[in-house]
Each structure stands twice: as structure tokens, then as C-alpha cells.
């Protein structure tokens, strides 16, 4: 009972802080303040996911949040000077949004009891798949098509970003984010091995415990960014054939295994008996490399002219 009270008050504090930070981010005058508010929001949101019993999601949220932060901070320099809507219009919009939020609240509070769930159905085949983590089973077996196409979405976004370059240097390396300093140098030498080990761990346990390719890939991308910010590694040239091959490897392996399913056991993206786990691990490893690379390349941006000096 006491623990229940504690949990409830913890949840209440978390929710109130979460909403306060979100409100601050929307209403802040300055773009940079809004960005910083949003970054804090992301951290609190990861905690909320833990409280909702979704550790896989919490890890993804925290990792992606860490990658979004430098992107947003960098972009806060391009905050436009566009004026927000006029006060009467804002009032009308606020009323409309409050109406929508209110309707949603009514729906949430009147949600059906007992709640419908696919948990039982999702757990039943886990033994045959030899997986312990049901979320991984959803991502790589039951709804594998979604996951496959989602990597294609990321790839399309990357191609879209690449297409924003000047004609003459679109296959060159992106502008270097390097801002070297002795402490950053130290961090960039010490942290990446640790990060890589943690990433491998996340990937490896992902079949049976929270974790998996997205979380691992994000961590690897962050380590890559750190190396480049410290000036230890230059960004790669985007036309490089090996780089392209690594980008394509993940979706290509996934697709190849999916198509092989047509022949054996006879259905696209189905795994032969007893082969599910090894094949899923192969797919996850290939996807980790490709997604890590795609995330990093998205952060680096389109190809740019080499610094002339």
C-alpha cells in the first residue's frame, strides 16, 4: 500500500514536471530556450517509459534523444524571425487544441476494461522462435515488414538530405563538426570503446531482454559523432563505394533473408523452423551497422566543399 502511494506520487511528480517542461518549450520566447526545454523533456520522457513498463522504448527514447540534441542545438542558430500567429488567432487555436485534448481525455478515461491486448498471442510463439523478448519478436517476426520498410524510410531521409548539396560536391565529405579541445580529445579516446561494448551488449541481449538494434545503432552513431567532433576522424566521402555498401548492407540482408523465405519455408519474411534466432541475429547485426551509419550521416548532413585553408 505504502509502495503504491510512493509510486503514485513519483508518477505525479514526473508527469507534472514533464508537462511543465513541455509547456516551457512551446511558449519560450527564444528558440534556444525552447530547444533546451525540449532536450530536458526527452530525458523525462525516457523515465516515463520506464514507469510504463516499456524499457525497450525507454532505451530508444533516451538514445535517440541524445542524437537529436546536437541536431537541435545546431539548428537553433537558424531559428527564423517569423512572428507567431496573432493573439486572437492564437486564442482560437488554443481553444481548438484544448477541445481536442479534452475529447482525448474523455476517451482515455473511458477506455475499455479489461483492455484489449495482443500480449498473449505475442508470447505464444516465442518458444518456437527461441526468443525471450516479445518486443524483438514483434519487430523482427510478426511485423517484420514494418521494420524492413522503416529502414527504407530512414534511407530515403538520408538520400533526401544528400540531395540538398551543391551539384559539384554532393559526393564529397560533409562539413566536419570538429571543434577540438583537450578534454574532448580525452573523452573521444576513452568513451568510444566503452560505448561500443555497451552497444554490443544491447544488441546481444536484445533477443531476450530489453535492447536491440536501434538502441545499439544509436549508441554507435553517437560514438562516431564524438570522434568527429574531437577531430580524431574526418567525415567520410559520401560517394565512397564501401560506405555505400555498408549503408545498404542492413536492408539488403534483411530483404535477402525475407525473399529466401519464399523458397523455404514458403513465405516472405518467414523463418525456417529452428533457424529463426540465428537469422534474426544476423539481420539485427547487419541492421545495426547500417542504421548506425545512416543516423550518423544524417547528423553530418549533405556533402560540402572541403575547407580551402
Amino acid at each position: 500500500m505504502r509502495a503504491g502511494m510512493m509510486n503514485a506520487s513519483l508518477d505525479a511528480v514526473l508527469v507534472v514536471t514533464l508537462l511543465a517542461v513541455a509547456l516551457f518549450s512551446v511558449l519560450a520566447r527564444q528558440a534556444r530556450a525552447a530547444v533546451i526545454g525540449f532536450i530536458a523533456f526527452g530525458l523525462l520522457l525516457a523515465l516515463a517509459w520506464v514507469r510504463l513498463g516499456a524499457v525497450d522504448v525507454a532505451l530508444t527514447e533516451a538514445a535517440i534523444g541524445a542524437l537529436t540534441a546536437p541536431l537541435l542545438l545546431g539548428a537553433s542558430a537558424f531559428a527564423g524571425t517569423e512572428k507567431p500567429a496573432s493573439p486572437p488567432l492564437r486564442l482560437a487555436l488554443a481553444a481548438l487544441c484544448a477541445l481536442i485534448a479534452g475529447t482525448l481525455a474523455v476517451i482515455v478515461l473511458a477506455a475499455p476494461e479489461p483492455a484489449p491486448s495482443l500480449a498473449m498471442q505475442a508470447v505464444a510463439p516465442l518458444g518456437a522462435l527461441d526468443l525471450g523478448n516479445a518486443v524483438t519478436a514483434v519487430l523482427l517476426a510478426y511485423r517484420a515488414l514494418d521494420t524492413l520498410l522503416e529502414t527504407v524510410v530512414v534511407l530515403l531521409a538520408l538520400i533526401g538530405i544528400w540531395s540538398l548539396a551543391h551539384d559539384e560536391n554532393w559526393r564529397d565529405a560533409p562539413a566536419s563538426p570538429a571543434a577540438p579541445s583537450p578534454p574532448l580529445d580525452l573523452l573521444a579516446r576513452v568513451l568510444p570503446p566503452v560505448g561500443l561494448v555497451v552497444a554490443m551488449h544491447l544488441l546481444w541481449v536484445g533477443a531476450d531482454a530489453p535492447g536491440g538494434k536501434f538502441q545499439a545503432a544509436t549508441l554507435i552513431a553517437a560514438m562516431g559523432l564524438l570522434l568527429m567532433m574531437a577531430g580524431l576522424t574526418p567525415p567520410p566521402a559520401l560517394g565512397d563505394a564501401r560506405l555505400r555498401a555498408l549503408v545498404v548492407a542492413g536492408p539488403a540482408v534483411f530483404l535477402a533473408i525475407g525473399l529466401a523465405g519464399f523458397l523455404f519455408p514458403g513465405s516472405f519474411l518467414a523463418y525456417p523452423d529452428g533457424w529463426a534466432k540465428p537469422l534474426i541475429i544476423v539481420i539485427e547485426m547487419a541492421l545495426t551497422v547500417s542504421i548506425a551509419l545512416m543516423l550518423l550521416l544524417m547528423l553530418l548532413g549533405p556533402g560540402a566543399r572541403k575547407p580551402s585553408a
Binding site: 495482443l118 498471442q121 517476426a141 510478426y142 511485423r143 519455408p265 513465405s267 518467414a270
Partner: peptide, 8 residues
């Protein structure tokens, strides 16, 4: 797809 019938 994959022999996994809806709704799963």
C-alpha cells in the same frame, strides 16, 4: 506476410 495472420 511471414505466415503471421492478423491481428498479430
Amino acid at each position: 506476410v511471414g505466415g503471421w495472420a492478423p491481428p498479430l
